[in-house]
């Protein structure tokens, strides 16, 4: 009887600790936007300075960010027309916080990588990278932009998320 009680105590303690640990690891509740990702992308793209932007293939996304677009529900990138420009617009719809962290890490690495390339000689590029780049996550979407109109594009992104599909 005592043994049974001891076993009960041990196993339910393990369950309690596991629940606490999982809650600690989780990011809490947030609602996922039901907005159409394509419409969100169009809204953000329309408000950006699109002079230097072109759509990227999955291979380009893999090469520039090291992430596999097929792992995400929606993944789209616009990138610069030439190697001397740094304009980019990335929109990804992720499924969980680990994907979110993956995207954040990839975007930060991309930004830093571009800064390393243009440091000391690309004044215009460095201005965009330092002062006109935004990385944010909201309602299941990750948004990263390097663009003269980054603020307007980010605002359009947020507004688009609030629209129901």
């Amino acid at each position: 009887m005592m043994k049974t009680l001891a076993f009960e105590l041990c196993r339910w303690t393990a369950v309690a600790v596991a629940i606490l640990f999982i809650v600690r690891l989780s990011d809490g509740f947030s609602t996922v936007s039901s907005a159409n990702p394509q419409k969100v992308l169009e809204a953000a793209y329309t408000c950006a300075d699109t002079t230097n932007l072109q759509p990227a293939s999955n291979q380009i996304i893999k090469r520039l960010y090291g992430i596999d677009p097929s792992e995400y529900e929606f993944c789209a990138l616009y990138y610069a027309l030439t190697n001397m420009d740094v304009d980019e617009l990335l929109l990804i719809k992720y499924a969980d916080s680990s994907q979110e962290q993956q995207i954040q890490s990839a975007a930060k690495a991309r930004l830093q990588g571009q800064k390393n390339v243009f440091e000391n000689y690309g004044v215009g590029q460095m201005d965009l990278l330092n002062n006109h780049s935004i990385l944010m996550s909201d309602s299941g979407f990750a948004f990263f932009i390097i663009n003269l109109k980054a603020d307007e594009s980010a605002a359009a992104f947020i507004n688009a998320l609030r629209e129901e599909e």
């Binding site: 690891l25 989780s26 809490g28 509740f29 039901s34 916080s97 299941g140």
Partner: peptide, 26 residues
């Protein structure tokens, strides 16, 4: 329950019309 939480929670929630993300870890 452990399996359902990690693998099926978001799927179940979205199928009952609750688009919530608990920020479930990997």
């Amino acid at each position: 329950a452990l399996l359902i939480f990690y693998k099926y929670f978001v799927f179940l929630m979205s199928n009952i019309g609750l688009n919530v993300n608990f920020g479930i870890p990997a």
